[in-house]
Amino acid sequence: MAEVHHHHVHNQDPEAGAEQRKAIWKTFWILLIITSLEFLIAFTIPHGVLKVSIFIVMTIVKAFYIVGEFMHLKHETKTLIWSILVPVIFVAWLILALLLEGNAIFEAIFG
């Protein structure tokens, strides 16, 4: 009975979780603004290392907000955060290594 009463109280309280909802909408606006900026950059900055670097940084910022806020990882224990992050760091290395490999293949064929 006590449990039922507890839930009932929460249903009636419009203020419950208000702060959390505010954080959710804030994250939404951040993601939307970054995506709009990406569009702006896509058509204003000439293609090159600078443009690609900006895009990669913006993608990582967006990933940080999605994983940190939406998936709540920022508020989990340190052990869980590192269990997820460490494998991803190795993946980042794999990406870099194989981009260099692709470039070496290009040099061997067309260089």
């Binding site: 494998p87 991803v88 993946v91 794999l94 990406i95 194989l98 981009l99 490999e101 692709g102 470039n103 293949i105 290009f106 064929i109």
Partner: peptide, 17 residues
């Protein structure tokens, strides 16, 4: 994540070559 990374890594390698 590993599966998707494998696809994107393969894409990057092909594009760079």
């Amino acid at each position: 994540t590993f599966t998707f990374s494998a696809l994107l890594v393969a894409y990057g390698t092909a594009r760079f070559s």
